[in-house]
Design a protein around this nucleic acid. Structure first.
Lengths: 129, 129
DNA sequence: AGTGAACTGTTACAAATGTAGTAAGACAGT
DNA sequence: ACTGTCTTACTACATTTGTAACAGTTCACT
């Protein structure tokens, strides 16, 4: 599933609230964007057509729920990036991230911490098995 | 600079060869895509209009050179992803990368190695200073 | 029951993207 | 000089995305 920039904004709201009407999204994005109410409506309809949202009626109001998770969407966006920009492999991307110093020292430390944790977990699992 | 999927393909070739005519790109992408020669031509022209390529004539042949580096393009694509999908911060993205197990064990080890190296480098620098 | 606000479905239109055809000019081999 | 091949500039058309207006319908309140 490929989401455009605008669609991402809408989806972020939907994932927060899990169940939204156009009005909810409009309200949530009022600060961030200048969209007209009908623009939000259009986005929602398109996302439903695309299959990213499920729509049903509550009275005469359309209610939308996500059919894909944020994690899935993130995964596929990430995969897209890796494919178009990094020869399809995560390795080069990670390398780039690090070498390019896109990361602050803090982020690096955090990353390292996470990796270590994961490492431990895995050892645990292997033993238990 | 925002590049579309197709534009990325073209740019990858240009970065490889540093200096290309439409024919070169067409040849290089023949395996990967089904594009007509004129499609390649169009992409190149558009990329030049966009400012991602510089064009000049050698005889009656148009020759193109990159005006942005692959690293720059990667950075901005990465930044785009982080902004739309991860609240604008690298941290959450890294967290996701790891927790979500988008990475294989091998990739994780590699990442860890890279981080350690970087760590060492930095210590060295600090001492030297 | 009447009315204004909110909501819906439909339609619109421009820019970006994917994909390519065509006509005309340049050039290399005969 | 002629002809086939290559290249270019220009044009074309569908789809996706950004952005929204409009007209009809419904609902809540008086």
């Amino acid at each position: 599933m490929k989401l455009s920039d605008g669609e991402w904004k809408v989806m972020q709201v939907v994932w927060e609230q899990q169940e939204v009407a156009a009005r909810d999204v409009f309200d949530a994005l009022e600060e961030e964007t200048e969209w007209a109410y009908t623009t939000v409506k259009t986005m929602l309809t398109r996302l439903a057509e695309k299959g990213a949202l499920a729509m049903h009626k509550r009275g005469n109001v359309s209610v939308f729920k996500p059919t894909i998770s944020r994690a899935e969407a993130r995964r596929s966006d990430l995969r897209g990036l890796v494919e178009r920009a990094f020869d399809g492999a995560f390795g080069p991307m990670l390398q780039f991230l690090i070498e390019d110093k896109s990361l602050s020292a803090k982020e690096r430390r955090k990353l390292q911490g996470l990796l270590e944790e994961l490492e431990k977990e895995n050892k645990g699992k292997r033993k238990g098995k």
